[in-house]
Nucleic acid binder design. Structure first.
Length: 828
DNA sequence: CTAGGGTTAG
């Protein structure tokens, strides 16, 4: 057995209509936002009163449910004190708080002293809320219990319990909140809408959407009628817990059916659901719906709306929204700015991000902790360490101490540049400042060390991580798996995959995409059969009896011992491609929905494969999973004319909704694959479509062609198209600019970093077509020529012929042979 | 009951 045979029976999904909804031409390219664990969901509701929103250009296809990663929980701000309107407590309550806060104070005594003066539940609520806000849970709980015990009236006890639950919930103490709730119910004062709503809110804050819904059902079963606050809390839980929009809209529908009118907060929370799910179009629909219903927008609405726009890569729209805010006199605050700035940075518009910081300062908005960390992270990720460190100094001079986020950004930045000494120094400094490294700190460090081959350091950090009692999550493991894949150590990554599964942590689409990427890199990697078998045949139950010794430590120590484990050479590319099919099946089995990144990774693997048959076979097989997406890739590869292009355009529309780097990766991968297999005209069609949709910024002017963000295949196709357009300028009787240049950059964006593949490909292309360009003396990433020389060349008789591209293959079946012809063609 | 910041795939 040399490689795992992929299962032959077709998987359940029907190629004809993967969409339950009404989009016959809709392509099911799953967008890469917020990967989640797979869970199953009920079918879409038929009687959605949200029809106007969900059936207009909806982006439901993007949303294949499940829980999202822990990052959303860690993102939440606990301990944010509540801004209360009118205070109902007496001055005695404040005195009691002062007394209780004194050093050495015994709370029980303070409570007894003030018992006669405190005026019932409002005073006690004030007291334990303040204690809770200070993080003194035990004191808050004792105070609450004291208050409940001395209170006779049931409804007052109920008030106390609801307040306590919501205070605990806001601080992330969800278990304590549960306990208070249970006790309250058992003792007969917890069976109120308020207590239930508070508990739902507590679950919401911690991202436990399913639990919130479960409690909601229990509440209805016990005969209580949910009110506006209940529904709002529940929708909030959907947003925080990563539920899909469908789920939230079902709650919304139910709310309407029960005659509860949604308010501003309802809509703000619905918008937040869109933000998590990456549903820009839906968010726009909601925003319009608010206007239609006469519900005023506030700063929350706008900030959330901006967040959705930025997450969807719609930075220009974000600017429009900001001007709308000004017009409506809803003034942007720190949240507004840090949201949009981050959006700019994500979209690669750094100049704009930095100018927004200036704008912010000019507007008199002082940078806060988040703003500073955003700025610092931008610099750190660019490797601009002087600037990053200067931001951290400015931050401290403003009285904001560096926190874990600051350090994590610095560690990541320095680590990515291989500045290990600096990494170690920062890590020590962080601990010296009494900041506890968190899960992210550890995964960053371990990944940095693995990538650098510093396995011993990786082990040390991992051991420390274990000593801290932190629990690894899917992101933690995925990061390490990716690091190992990047080192070409697929077999070690598969051990980690096994290990995480045994620990009960399900891999997600990101985990698998890392692995698929590693398969593509076949020449430098060991993609031997054994590890692949492991990857596709993970069994949930533990095979190894796990002793006190941690398996990950064993794996890392093995690495340390072997040092360079890039051993045996693979049996060839054919095997790699079929391995991908196996991985794909495995993903399907685990209900992990592949997305556009999976698609790009697979196409990249095809581009590295010399066999057309293998590539087309793989794509054809994958049509069984997703005929629309892989049908386009396969159809273009086969040179099919009719039908495919229409479908391709609809695929491109889908991609256009995604952020620029996702979109360009997609176009790069698809064009590369087509170019690689001689479908050059097809490649050019795709690349021009990408250009038309501005996937690569500023690619094209008469005097300069900037290819630095493109893959080799895309760039080659683009060069042809550009030269042809220049040719028509010449033949139109116009002058060319004095200097023409073609930028390839330094290979920074190449799939294999720093190898200059793009530059070499363009150099080869220019030579082969006889284009008179030379490498510029002052810039090795630029080819130049003069307008006159190029014009003369373009006028030569043979030039047009070399510039016009053709497909090696056209029409279905023309070049089909071998096993492929034995396969049934699938309906398109 | 509502808003922004560090992490994984390309």
């Amino acid at each position: 057995m040399s490689f795992p045979t992929p299962p032959l029976q077709p998987p359940p999904p029907q190629p004809t209509s993967p969409h339950p909804r009404n989009h016959p031409h809709k392509v099911s390219l799953n967008r890469p936002t917020h990967p989640r664990h797979a869970t199953t969901h009920p079918p879409p509701s038929q009687n959605s009163s949200f029809l106007s929103l969900s059936s207009s250009r909806s982006d439901f296809s993007a949303d294949f449910s499940g829980r999202r990663s822990t990052r959303f929980v860690s993102k939440m701000h606990f301990n944010r004190p509540r801004v209360s309107g009118t205070s109902r407590h007496s001055s005695f309550a404040e005195q009691a708080l002062t007394e209780a806060s004194k050093n050495g104070a015994v709370l029980d005594q303070v409570l007894l002293t003030f018992e006669s003066k405190l005026l019932g539940s409002d005073d006690y609520t004030f007291l334990f809320r303040e204690l809770g806000n200070k993080g003194e849970w035990l004191a808050a709980m004792r105070c609450f219990e004291f208050a409940v015990r001395r209170e006779r009236r049931r409804n007052e006890q109920g008030k106390l319990a609801s307040s306590m639950i919501s205070i605990l919930g806001r601080s992330g103490k969800v278990e304590l909140a549960e306990k208070v709730f249970e006790t309250a119910v058992n003792e007969g004062y917890g069976n109120t809408v308020y207590a239930y709503s508070a508990l739902i809110g507590a679950y919401a804050k911690s991202g436990y959407c399913n639990e919130a819904i479960r409690v909601f059902e229990t509440m209805k079963d016990s005969g209580l009628k949910p009110n506006l606050v209940t529904y709002n809390a529940l929708i909030d839980a959907c947003g925080k817990g990563g539920a899909d929009f469908k789920r939230a809209s079902e709650i919304f529908d139910e709310m309407l059916r029960n005659g509860v009118q949604p308010d501003r907060i309802t809509f703000n929370s619905l918008l937040a659901v869109c933000s998590g799910a990456g549903l820009w179009e839906t968010a726009r629909g909601l925003f319009n719906e608010m206007v239609y219903r006469g519900i005023d927008q506030d700063i929350y609405t706008y900030n959330t709306f901006l967040d959705v726009a930025c997450n969807g890569g719609q930075v220009d729209v974000a600017f429009d929204i900001m001007s709308e805010m000004h017009a409506k006199n809803i003034l942007p605050n720190q949240v507004t700015y840090s949201t949009v700035i981050r959006g700019c940075a994500k979209a690669g518009r750094l100049d704009k991000a930095l100018s927004l910081f200036n704008e912010m300062k000019c507007a008199g908005i002082t940078l806060d902790r988040v703003s500073y960390n955003t700025l610092l992270a931008i610099y750190a990720s660019l490797g601009k360490f002087d600037e990053a460190l200067s931001v951290s100094r400015e931050m401290e001079s403003m009285g904001i101490k560096k926190d874990v986020v600051t350090y994590n950004a610095l560690l990541d930045g320095f680590g990515k540049q291989g500045r290990y000494a600096k990494v170690k120094q920062l890590f020590a400094e962080m601990k010296a400042e009494n900041l506890s490294p968190n899960l992210l700190t550890y995964s960053t460090l371990i990944s940095v060390y693995l990538k650098g081959g510093l396995y011993q350091d990786a082990v040390e950090v991992y051991k420390e991580f274990k000593r801290q009692g932190l629990k690894a999550d899917v992101v933690f493991y995925s990061k390490l798996i990716d690091a190992l894949c990047k080192k070409g150590l697929v077999e070690y990554s598969s051990l980690l995959l096994n290990e995480m599964t045994k620990e009960g942590i399900q891999p997600n689409v990101v985990t698998y995409n890392s692995i698929i990427n590693a398969f593509g890199e076949s020449t430098s990697n060991d993609c031997g059969s054994d590890n692949v078998t492991q990857i596709v045949s993970i069994v949930p139950e533990s095979k190894v009896v796990c002793t006190a010794e941690d398996n990950i430590i064993k794996i890392f120590e093995q690495l340390t011992a072997q040092k360079t484990a890039n051993g045996k050479k693979t049996n060839g590319e054919k095997q790699d491609l079929l391995c991908i099919l196996g991985v794909f099946h495995k993903m399907h089995e685990l209900q992990i929905k592949p997305n556009v990144v999976t698609f790009s990774a697979i196409l990249n693997a095809c581009s590295r494969c010399s066999s057309f048959d293998e590539a087309s076979l793989l794509l054809e097989e994958l049509r069984l999973f997703d005929n629309q997406v892989y049908g386009v890739a396969h159809g273009l590869l086969m040179g099919q004319q009719e039908g495919v292009w229409t479908q391709a355009l609809s695929l491109f529309n889908e991609v256009k909704q995604m952020d620029s780097s996702t979109a360009s990766a997609f176009y790069n991968a698809l064009t590369d694959m087509l170019w690689h297999f001689g479908q050059k005209q097809g490649a050019q069609l795709v690349v021009l479509e990408g250009k038309r949709r501005e996937v690569w910024e500023n690619t094209w002017s008469t005097s300069c062609l900037d290819l630095h963000l493109m893959s080799s295949g895309a760039a080659c196709a683009m060069v042809h198209a550009w030269l042809l357009s220049i040719r028509s300028i010449v033949y139109g009787g116009h002058e060319l600019p004095k200097i023409l240049s073609i930028l390839t950059g330094w290979g920074k964006h190449s799939k294999i970093t720093g190898d200059g593949a793009l530059k070499r490909a363009i150099e080869g292309l220019l030579t082969s077509i006889g284009a008179p360009f030379q490498i510029a003396k002052c810039n090795i990433g630029r080819f130049i020529s003069t307008g006159a020389v190029v014009a003369a060349w373009l006028r030569e008789s043979g030039t047009l012929e070399v510039l016009v591209l053709h497909n090696d293959r056209s029409h279905l079946g023309a070049t089909r042979f071998g096993q492929i012809s034995n396969l049934q063609p699938l309906p398109l």
